[in-house]
């Protein structure tokens, strides 16, 4: 029983225990996750120009192009960024590009191995050292970005297993960043896409050719990245929504109509359902909060 019997419904709602809100959010997120898991259904996605730009930048490269992808995130952001990394690797695999994976975030190193194993691990046409390589982690943030711009082997003398780059066939001819055909950064913050533009991509302009650059970033970071699109960046995947749009483009290319898409290539699309209910709940809570606010203000003015 309420300790304030004459209190109005809205006033009681204003004092609601925040654990009820936590519970509502838990249901709003868990319900759709279970629903998607059971039915396998996802919402249709239409690619925005920035996502289409990212897709086209990888798509237009000739087969066997050299793609450097930097996994600049950690498990905390993997929920949002891992589907992007998986999508980029999957797309590169479909286009038979050579994949050079690296990270400037120490916790990102195991994510490289897991992603490569997950996507191209069972593909016999992809051989380690010839078609893909895991360069692992290097400390130094922007320092590494600047160094790979002028002397790549100095920044990464070995791959993640300690094999010297000179013994890795696909590293032959790689002397600096501009030797790659495209740079992809999947980043959750500093150092990430913004720093890659400033210290990695921009200097290639003075070297006679602008390195095409594509980025995937968290929702929080995306507004800082948008000013670089479309001049310094060919495309950008913003948050899980951008990842879902990119997945739908890659899956449309990879699978015939009616063919089932493996769940691992639909992770971002599957996460759009909890995102929808989570956002809707937020909007609902804000509306209810404001109804309470205005009702309280009107009551105060009347008194």
């Amino acid at each position: 029983m309420s300790d304030r019997p004459n209190e109005s419904f809205l006033a009681r709602l204003d004092r609601i225990d925040r654990r009820w809100i936590f519970l509502m959010m838990a249901i709003a997120v868990a319900g759709p996750i279970i629903w998607v898991g059971v039915t396998g259904r996802t919402f249709p996605e239409t690619a925005t120009p920035a996502v289409q730009g990212a897709f086209d930048a990888i798509e237009r490269l000739p087969e066997g192009s050299k793609v450097l992808i930097s996994f600049d995130f950690d498990p905390a952001s993997a929920g949002e960024l891992q589907p992007m990394a998986t999508g980029f690797i999957h797309h590169c695999q479909l286009r038979k590009h050579r994949i050079y994976a690296m990270t400037l975030w120490a916790p990102g190193s195991p994510l490289i191995g897991a992603t490569l194993a997950d996507v191209i691990g069972s593909d016999p046409s992809y051989r380690y050292g010839e078609n893909f390589v895991d360069l692992g982690y290097q400390a130094g943030n922007e320092g590494v970005m600047k160094q790979v711009g002028v002397d790549f082997p100095k920044a990464f003398p070995n791959d993640s297993k300690g094999t010297p780059l000179a013994r890795i066939p696909m590293m032959q001819g790689i002397t600096r960043l501009s030797d790659f055909d495209i740079l992809i950064s999947v980043s959750a913050g500093y150092p990430g896409g913004k720093e890659w533009v400033q210290y990695g991509v921009s200097p290639t302009l003075t070297q006679g050719h602008r390195l095409p650059f594509v980025a995937g970033s968290t929702g929080v970071q995306t507004p800082q990245m948008i000013p670089y699109y479309p001049v310094q960046m060919s495309g950008i995947l913003g948050a899980i929504k951008g990842a879902a749009e990119y997945e739908s483009l890659v899956n449309a290319k990879a699978t015939a109509p009616g063919e089932t898409v493996p769940a691992k290539y639909q992770e971002a699309q599957r996460r759009m359902a909890p995102q929808l209910f989570g956002h809707s709940l937020m909007v609902g809570l804000i509306l209810v909060g404001n109804v309470i606010f205005f009702a309280g203000r009107r009551k105060g003015a009347a008194e």
């Binding site: 997120v29 209810v288 909060g289 404001n290």
Partner: peptide, 19 residues
Amino acid sequence: LFALLAFYVASAAFRAFRA
């Protein structure tokens, strides 16, 4: 830790996001 943000943001939106 990162996922907990969703819960705290929802609670804060209800209480603090007023016109």
